[in-house]
């Protein structure tokens, strides 16, 4: 009769919730990281190695750098792994992170159409190239999502003496989305876009896009990792989180990062021991 079935249904619902709760009983940490590390496939390569060694499940929530730091600030992650040195240092200074460790770098590249509409393909000076993009009004896609890549793009416009918040036209489009989405948009509209090399190398929908500008020192992109401060958020799994941080900067972790390649190209360059990184 109806009532009895209702109880069966309720019991089933309860056991479902309980069974999904069982997932979280394992040894695991949450890492807030950037879309570039996730989309490039780096985590897919290094996390199984870490798990094999320690038995710790690393759950990566990939967001823009700004959002990832916010996630750490709210205590929703145990470790933050991002690429925006100044913001990271502020994160630690504000007491949200215990200490910042440099891990690795990759570089940004300016992606643009094969047709070389702005005539900058193959040059090395990113600042000069951006000036030409602007003066030609060549279409440009900006992440516009307060990510590390977005912050780097704004720094480069600044270095070119262009106040992009004022000095923009219809050629400049902010999409407010991740790296992959920005590349998809650029691919669909043959526009220029600043990207990290890792995402670019693993990106499949390139269309007419090629690397326009690369190799400038100012395109350097440093990643840092921080344990969220257990004094701010008591529930932070400090032992497990610190184990992950320690592994990333250990010889073994650094080698794992260097070993990750797409089509024979290395994406990330470990530099945990480089002074000032």
């Amino acid at each position: 009769m109806p009532t009895r079935r209702l109880f069966i249904v309720m019991a089933a619902a309860a056991s479902l919730l309980a069974s999904s709760a069982a997932f979280s009983q394992e040894k695991s940490i949450v890492v807030a990281s950037t879309t570039s590390t996730q989309d490039s496939g780096l985590f897919g390569h290094i996390l199984p190695l870490f798990k094999k060694k320690t038995g710790i499940d690393v759950r990566v929530v990939s967001q823009g750098t700004g959002q990832a730091l916010d996630t750490g600030r709210r205590g929703d992650a145990d470790v933050v792994f991002v690429h925006a040195k100044r913001q990271e240092e502020k994160f630690v200074a504000d007491g949200f992170g215990v200490r910042r460790y440099p891990v690795m770098y990759n570089d940004f590249i300016l992606i643009g159409p094969k047709s070389n509409s702005a005539g900058i393909n193959g040059t090395k000076d990113i600042v000069a190239a951006l000036k030409i993009v602007k003066s030609n009004g060549a279409p440009f896609i900006s992440r516009g999502d307060k990510s590390g890549t977005h912050a780097a793009e704004l720094r480069l416009w600044n270095a070119a003496g262009i106040d992009i918040t004022k000095d923009r036209g219809a050629w400049y489009k902010e999409i407010g989305q991740g790296m992959g989405a920005a590349l998809n948009t650029a691919s669909a509209s043959n526009a220029y876009v600043l990207a990290d090399r890792g995402t670019w190398l693993s990106f499949k929908n390139r269309g007419e896009l090629v690397i326009a500008v690369e190799g400038d020192n100012r395109l350097f992109n440093q990643y840092g990792v921080m344990l969220v401060n257990p004094e701010k958020h008591k529930h932070v799994k400090k032992e497990l989180g610190q184990a992950f941080v320690d592994w990333l900067i250990s010889a073994e972790g650094q080698k794992a990062i260097a070993d990750y390649k797409i089509d024979g190209q290395q994406l990330f360059f470990p530099n945990a021991n480089a002074p000032g990184a």
């Binding site: 992959g180 995402t199 693993s202 499949k204």
Partner: peptide, 18 residues
């Protein structure tokens, strides 16, 4: 852990693997 059909689709789209 929390990847579903739809979030996987969103991710593959963002990776350009249409």
């Amino acid at each position: 852990f929390t990847r579903t059909m739809t979030t996987a689709i969103a991710l593959e789209t963002s990776k350009g693997d249409l």
